[in-house]
Design a protein around this nucleic acid. Structure first.
Lengths: 219, 219
DNA sequence: ATCAGAACTTGACGGCCGTCAAGAAATTCA
DNA sequence: TGAATTTCTTGACGGCCGTCAAGTTCTGAT
């Protein structure tokens, strides 16, 4: 594997120099998870910060009625576990690798030491928090107040905008996308078919979607 | 007004000594907002951290269709929700005083200096945002996967548990509670009436609710 | 205390969307 | 590559709950 592997990937360490990254790399643990395997579950002790070195991880919760809610889709370079870095808490969500995934982890006490030594890290962590909070705030507002149609249209245009392309492949199975948007796979199928009938999008094999009229899609 | 007024109230400064609190107090600005007035709006520049010294503030977003989503209810001692304090960003939500409210604010640059000087502050801020994040995760899961009935029942039992009492007054108008739970005032009225018919709660004048059977309320 | 306005309750109605089911398409693995 | 399994699509149906409306209760200001 490469030199600073995961440590280099992560924005929270971006202000650090090469030797400092070496130091961090030396205290990092490496893990590999096959597709479909579980990284962590609710009630697990939350004792380390995880860095996705390569792959894709879905983070979800289970409601009391057993239904699943996808909260985050972690990509290469994303971190997780920052929510309780200084408190003894347990996890509240599940983590599952969607593809073969490499993960680096730093134990909580080690990370605390790092933050003492390099204050820029704490500020970066706070910013990661901020992004996650505002993403989640928007998600909450969206699922609570908008129709499935509007939420799906939003998701499509935002995903396309993030990739800077009009034609892209959905990064999730419809089942997972459904739990992310707070709906069902059937409803997604129907709404996509509707968008296609309206000429707003074109669906191609392999979960590929082409946007024909982004403005109209958002009303 | 008292000595350390708001600064003393806030958990994020709890590790600091009296003279340090004095220093902070000296850079704090005080504001008063009458009930119903706006503290901040979406797109306002995010240039200071706000501390609720006394009163109650609702923080909400507006969806594209104009509907309101209540995200947080800030009480005395709470700080406002924007975690993006270290990036040049704008606010994403609205803040409105529900009762006459005193607020102290610290300018962003001053707060950044404080965090450099007293690392305990950053750690406390991380913990506050961590709690807020997991609260919001649960809220998202709840509104996306559970029925109005289940969400309301949950809200009632949790509020009662937090107050350690079976009889309590709803801290919000039904209209605001509705936007918090992702429903409508009418539905809340109906479900409360249903719970009362089932003997699970008793409603009394003045938004007071008495829980008769907490277990049954959650199934 | 009185009154105007806001908040709440209750009923009727309808539409969105979740559920169940069955067949089609796509993906995986030997 | 081919078969087995998973995922997806489409239809029919029904219930939850949002909307509209009208009446009632509550609240707060004069």
């Amino acid at each position: 594997m490469a030199e600073h592997e995961c440590v280099q990937l992560v924005p929270i360490f971006s202000e650090l120099g090469s030797e400092q990254l070496d130091t961090i790399e030396s205290i990092v643990r490496h893990h590999h998870y096959p597709a479909g395997s579980t990284l962590f579950g609710a009630d697990d002790p939350l004792d380390s910060l995880m860095i996705v070195a390569n792959g894709q991880v879905k983070v979800y919760q289970l409601a009391a009625n057993g239904r699943e809610q996808l909260l985050y889709l972690l990509q290469t370079g994303d971190i997780d576990g920052e929510a309780a870095l200084f408190e003894n808490q347990r996890r509240t969500s599940f983590g599952e690798a969607l593809v073969p995934t490499d993960v680096c982890s730093i134990r909580r006490s080690d990370f605390q030491d790092l933050m003492q030594k390099y204050p820029s890290i704490s500020i970066n962590v706070l910013n990661v928090f901020g992004k996650r909070l505002s993403q989640l705030e928007r998600q909450t507002t969206s699922t609570a107040t908008e129709s499935v149609e509007a939420r799906l249209a939003n998701y499509i245009t935002e995903t396309a905008a993030a990739l800077k392309t009009d034609t892209f492949k959905l990064p999730l199975k419809k089942k997972d996308l459904a739990t992310f948007l707070g709906t069902t796979p059937e409803s997604i199928s129907r709404k996509l078919a509707l968008f296609e009938r309206q000429g707003l999008i074109t669906q191609k094999p392999g979960k590929v979607i082409e946007i024909n009229d982004a403005d109209q899609l958002l009303w």
